[in-house]
């Protein structure tokens, strides 16, 4: 938010939406500060995931019917596309975590284009941070448990290199594994959702502003373009939402595997 947009907001001119898109007051006046829209829909998202999979897998049949078919497609996707390529024979053991992470993130992301909700929960850094931190602690716990408290930290350094290289390599390796990896893990999801939501809000506001708020002959074509781009970007966002959920879960599987077995 810069001075120009602040000035513009008071006038009749079009003002692009900024970070205020992500600021929510309490749901009702005088309500607790924490009871905001993202909080409500974060919990709602987890309930949607639980209800859907409850109706699919509560009483699974050998010959699947109805919702179970759909649930199995989801399970197979996570198992075959995310679990097995990284975790191999350990996949089944980690499927509960991968399923939970993937479908919770995906439904949170989908909320960005669901009417009325229209907000990607993961565009608030706290939510991806919780998931990334969980994966991070699991990774370190597994590393220490399966490779040993010392070997876990030495295994990730390749051996047989000239001594000076290690002065560079060791800090980079530790920095990347223990600080940058969890940070980028969370921020990648957060930033994608944040940007996507901003883009959608911008183009839909363009359409709304030039066609309804301040309709002018000159602005009409701009408004039409705004609506069309919003439609295209919504489709694109649907892909991004899925892709980011997929990527986040894939990285989670990769980190878990790096804890279970040394990479080098």
């Amino acid at each position: 938010m810069n001075a120009q947009t602040v000035l513009a907001s008071s006038g009749d001119e079009f003002k692009a939406p900024g970070p205020e898109l992500f600021e929510f007051p309490p749901l009702f006046a005088g309500g607790p500060e924490w009871l905001t829209k993202p909080v409500v829909f974060a919990v709602f998202g987890s309930l949607v995931v639980v209800v859907f999979f409850w109706s699919a897998f509560a009483n699974p049949k050998l010959v699947p019917r109805g919702v179970q078919n759909l649930g199995e497609v989801g399970y197979m996707f996570v198992r075959d596309q995310i679990g097995r390529p990284f975790l191999g024979k350990n996949t089944d053991q980690w499927m509960p975590l991968l399923m939970s992470v993937f479908f919770l993130i995906w439904i949170w992301n989908i909320f960005a284009v669901v009417p009325i909700i229209q907000f990607p929960i993961a565009s608030h850094i706290a939510f991806p941070a919780v998931l990334a931190a969980s994966v991070y602690f699991i990774k370190i716990y597994l590393g220490i448990k399966h490779q040993g408290p010392v070997k876990y930290f030495t295994n990730m350094i390749p051996s047989g290199l000239p001594l000076p290289v290690y002065f560079l390599l060791v800090p980079i390796e530790y920095l990347s594994t223990f600080i940058l990896a969890p940070f980028t893990h969370a921020v990648r999801l957060f930033a994608n959702m944040f940007a996507g939501h901003t883009i959608l809000a911008f183009f839909s506001l363009v359409g709304f502003w030039f066609l309804f708020e301040k309709p002018t002959v000159a602005g009409f074509s701009v408004g039409i373009i705004g609506v069309l781009v919003t439609i295209v970007m919504t489709a694109f966002e649907l892909l991004i939402q899925f892709l980011q959920a997929f990527l986040f879960t894939m990285l989670a599987a990769m980190y878990i595997q790096s804890g279970l077995h040394a990479e080098h």
């Binding site: 974060a42 919990v43 998202g45 987890s46 309930l47 995931v49 639980v50 999979f53 409850w54 699919a56 897998f57 509560a58 009483n59 699974p60 649930g71 199995e72 399970y75 499927m95 509960p96 975590l97 399923m99 939970s100 479908f103 919770l104 706290a126 939510f127 941070a129 919780v130 998931l131 969980s134």
Partner: peptide, 20 residues
Amino acid sequence: GIFSFAVVMIFLGKVLTPRI
């Protein structure tokens, strides 16, 4: 976030995934 994730982990992770 922790609460939501925990709810999903308990129901989908601990109960439903083993069933399927």
